[in-house]
């Protein structure tokens, strides 16, 4: 049962928590090893699913579009359509959804379990601020990783589209690239996609660390916090995507 006052209280708590995390980020530059370690578990371990998903999304896009485009004799624009679809929408959004499922849930579960087993209070007892030591590196790692993952997703997707379109379906290789280079604008299309993925990285990392830090310190509480991370950050990503698209491509 969702109660409006409770939801607003949570939103306020989340915002205050975010401010605390952001205040803890500057001291991370002295000890960047903490962030590197988290980038391994958040970024590197998500890389495989991003590579595979990007490849297949690009391949299936090329198949579907070729089927429709060939009825108009417009196969040459295949590369352009695959590129635009990936760079503008699918790269940032699908990468963010996969990231929420693979890395966000793991972050929440890890932090929630630390809370349930009183490791966070233990740190506080030793006068170590858990937000600075535990939360901030994880937040920063997620925030830095997602734009890179989204760029890899788009690039691999385009290569997958090339593989299916040019190698299997016989679209001309020169037309594939020249249409892309003539029509895809670096600032309007590619950079706006990158900005999207930066925003999504911020949102997903924020939700993941907050849900973990805010969960009920029981096994049930950790489980429902993990679920909430995936559900809420997926919805937030899709909602934000509409808003950003409306602003950028108006």
């Amino acid at each position: 049962m969702i109660h409006p006052v409770n939801s607003l209280t949570r939103l306020g708590r989340g915002t205050l928590f975010l401010l605390k995390v952001l205040a803890g980020i500057p001291q991370l530059f002295v000890r960047f090893g903490l962030v590197t370690k988290q980038m391994y578990s958040v970024g590197v371990q998500t890389l495989l699913i991003i590579l595979v998903a990007g490849l297949f999304v690009g391949m299936v896009l090329a198949l579907q579009l070729h089927y429709t485009l060939s009825t108009f004799g417009a196969e040459d624009t295949l590369g352009l359509l695959v590129d635009l679809a990936l760079v503008r929408e699918l790269g940032p959004v699908v990468a963010a959804l996969l990231f929420a499922g693979r890395a966000g849930s793991a972050l929440t579960a890890e932090i929630g379990l630390m809370k349930a087993t009183e490791q966070l209070s233990g740190l506080e007892m030793m006068a170590v601020d858990p937000v600075e030591r535990i939360i901030a590196p994880r937040f920063l790692a997620g925030f830095l990783s997602l734009p890179l993952l989204a760029a890899i997703f788009s690039a691999v997707g385009i290569l997958g589209g090339y593989m299916v379109g040019v190698d299997f379906l016989g679209v001309d290789s020169g037309a594939f690239w020249s249409q892309i280079q003539a029509k895809v604008d670096f600032y309007d299309d590619v950079m706006n996609g990158v900005i999207k993925s930066i925003v999504f990285g911020f949102i997903v990392s924020w939700i993941a660390v907050f849900e973990g830090y805010d969960c009920l310190p029981t096994s049930e509480g950790v489980a429902s916090a993990t679920t909430r991370t995936v559900v809420n950050s997926s919805l937030a990503v899709l909602g934000m995507d509409f808003v950003l698209t409306a602003i950028m491509f108006n």
Binding site: S154, I180, V184, F186, V190
Partner: peptide
């Protein structure tokens, strides 16, 4: 590298 490829190969830059 992916970002560089998107910039140089997959756009008009």
């Amino acid at each position: 590298a992916a970002l560089f490829m998107l910039a140089m190969q997959a756009s008009n830059l």
